[in-house]
Deep mutational scan, measured.
Amino acid sequence: GHYRIRINGREFEIRGISEEEIRHLEEALRNGADEKILKEIVDRLRG
């Protein structure tokens, strides 16, 4: 998958993330885990 997200007015492209991972992120966001989720995304993109 290849997705664009906007955070604090800046747009980011996220590549190589699966539909299942996105559902997991959405679930966590609904549970209020904003900073933790951003850290997970950044860590994943770093490799």
Rank of each mutant, 00 (worst) to 15 (best):
residue 5 I to L: 03
residue 43 D to G: 03
residue 41 I to N: 01
residue 36 K to M: 09
residue 34 D to L: 08
residue 6 R to F: 15
residue 28 A to K: 07
residue 2 H to N: 13
residue 39 K to D: 04
residue 31 N to G: 13
residue 16 G to P: 04
residue 7 I to R: 00
residue 21 E to H: 05
residue 44 R to S: 12
residue 6 R to P: 02
residue 17 I to S: 03
residue 1 G to K: 11
residue 30 R to T: 10
residue 33 A to Q: 06
residue 15 R to D: 08
residue 23 R to F: 11
residue 32 G to W: 04
residue 34 D to Q: 04
residue 29 L to F: 08
residue 18 S to K: 08
residue 3 Y to C: 06
residue 8 N to R: 02
residue 29 L to H: 04
residue 4 R to K: 14
residue 2 H to T: 14
residue 35 E to M: 09
residue 1 G to P: 13
residue 13 E to N: 05
residue 18 S to P: 04
residue 46 R to P: 09
residue 14 I to K: 00
residue 25 L to D: 00
residue 31 N to I: 09
residue 38 L to W: 07
residue 40 E to R: 03
residue 15 R to W: 13
residue 47 G to F: 06
residue 5 I to K: 00
residue 18 S to E: 03
residue 35 E to C: 07
residue 7 I to L: 06
residue 27 E to Q: 05
residue 35 E to R: 04
residue 44 R to W: 13
residue 21 E to Q: 11
residue 38 L to R: 02
residue 43 D to Q: 05
residue 7 I to T: 00
residue 2 H to W: 12
residue 24 H to M: 13
residue 35 E to H: 09
residue 22 I to Y: 04
residue 35 E to P: 10
residue 45 L to E: 02
residue 38 L to T: 02
residue 34 D to G: 10
residue 28 A to D: 03
residue 29 L to S: 04
residue 47 G to Q: 12
residue 6 R to V: 15
residue 14 I to E: 00
residue 20 E to D: 06
residue 9 G to H: 02
residue 28 A to W: 07
residue 24 H to V: 15
residue 22 I to L: 07
residue 23 R to I: 12
residue 25 L to T: 01
residue 25 L to W: 06
residue 39 K to V: 08
residue 45 L to F: 13
residue 43 D to S: 05
residue 47 G to P: 14
residue 42 V to G: 03
residue 8 N to E: 06
residue 46 R to K: 14
residue 14 I to N: 00
residue 39 K to G: 09
residue 12 F to A: 00
residue 14 I to P: 00
residue 6 R to N: 15
residue 25 L to K: 00
residue 11 E to N: 04
residue 13 E to F: 13
residue 15 R to N: 10
residue 31 N to Q: 10
residue 5 I to H: 00
residue 41 I to Y: 05
residue 10 R to D: 05
residue 46 R to L: 15
residue 10 R to W: 08
residue 15 R to Y: 15
residue 36 K to A: 12
residue 2 H to S: 15
residue 41 I to F: 09
residue 19 E to V: 12
residue 37 I to R: 07
residue 20 E to M: 07
residue 26 E to C: 04
residue 40 E to I: 07
residue 1 G to H: 09
residue 34 D to P: 09
residue 24 H to K: 12
residue 5 I to W: 02
residue 25 L to P: 00
residue 8 N to G: 08
residue 21 E to N: 11
residue 17 I to M: 05
residue 39 K to T: 12
residue 3 Y to R: 02
residue 4 R to D: 02
residue 26 E to D: 11
residue 33 A to Y: 06
residue 38 L to K: 02
residue 39 K to I: 15
residue 29 L to N: 03
residue 3 Y to T: 02
residue 44 R to M: 11
residue 47 G to A: 11
residue 27 E to P: 01
residue 9 G to N: 05
residue 30 R to Y: 11
